[in-house]
Amino acid sequence: MNIYVCIKQVPDTATKIKINSDRTWIDTNGIKWIVSPYDEFAIEEALKLKESDPSNTVTVISAGPERVKEAIRTGLAMGADKGIHIELSEMADTALTAKALAGAIKKQNDASLVLMGKEAADDGLAQVPQFVSRLLGFSCVTVALEITYAADVLTVKREVEGGTIEKIQTPLPAVIAAQKGLNEPRYASLPNIMKAKKKEIEMLTMADVGVTDSDQMVRLVGFDLPPTKQPGRKIDGDVATQVQELVKALKDEAKVV
C-alpha cells in the first residue's frame, strides 16, 4: 500500500504573533516553524502501518515555500521513505493547496491511503482533507480517533460533540484526517535524523501538479490582533457578590458563558 501524508508547516504555537504593516499577513521574522501538530498524528499513523507491513511506503508531501522542506525532513526523520515538495506561495488558500496536493497524488497514480491532520494549527479551517478527497474521488472520514485496518476496508472512530464517537466504515482508497489522540507521534531517533538528510525530496512546480494562481478562491485580509487583554483583576466583596460579579464578567466581558 502506498500511503501519502500531507503536512503543513505552521508557526510554533508558543510564538508571539505580530501583524505586518499592511495587515495582509503576519510578520514572519523570528517565527519558529514546526509541522502542524495534527499532521504529526497522520505521519505516525502512516509509520505504524509501515512497521506492520514493510511493503507499505510512506511519502510525505507539503505545498509551500522553500522553508517547508524542513517540515518534510522532519517527516523523513521520523521514518517516511520519500518526500515531495510542491512549490507554492505561503499565501495560497486551502482550495489552491488542496488542488496542488491532489494533483501531485494523482500524478503518482498509486495512492491507497492519504492521511493528514484534521485541520492546520495556524488557520484551523479544516477543509483540505475534504477538498482533497473530492478532487481524488476518494472516500473521506475526518477527526479520526482510531483506525482499524482490514483487507481493503477501514473502520474509523470519529469524534463528535459531548464525548460521543461515530463509527464509520469506508473502503479504500480513502482520505483520513487525524484527530489528537489517534496515536503518540514518535520522537525521531538520531540515526533516522542522519539518514533523513540523504533521503530524496522530489520538487514539483505548480505546472507539474496542474494548478495556477487562479485556482485560489479566497484571501485572508485585514489581520488584526485581538483587543489587548485587560490586566487581571481580583473581585472583592463577600462570596455572593464575588460570584455575581464573576458570572457577569464572564458573560458580558469575556463572553465565555
Binding site: 508571539k16 495556524d122 484551523g124 485560489q216 484571501r219 485572508l220 489581520f223
Partner: peptide, 17 residues
C-alpha cells in the same frame, strides 16, 4: 471574520471570484 493562529489574531475573509 475568523480567528487565526489559535485565536492570537483575526482576519477578514475576502472571496475572490
Amino acid at each position: 471574520r475568523r480567528p487565526v493562529f489559535s485565536g492570537k489574531a483575526t482576519a477578514e475573509v475576502e472571496f475572490i471570484g
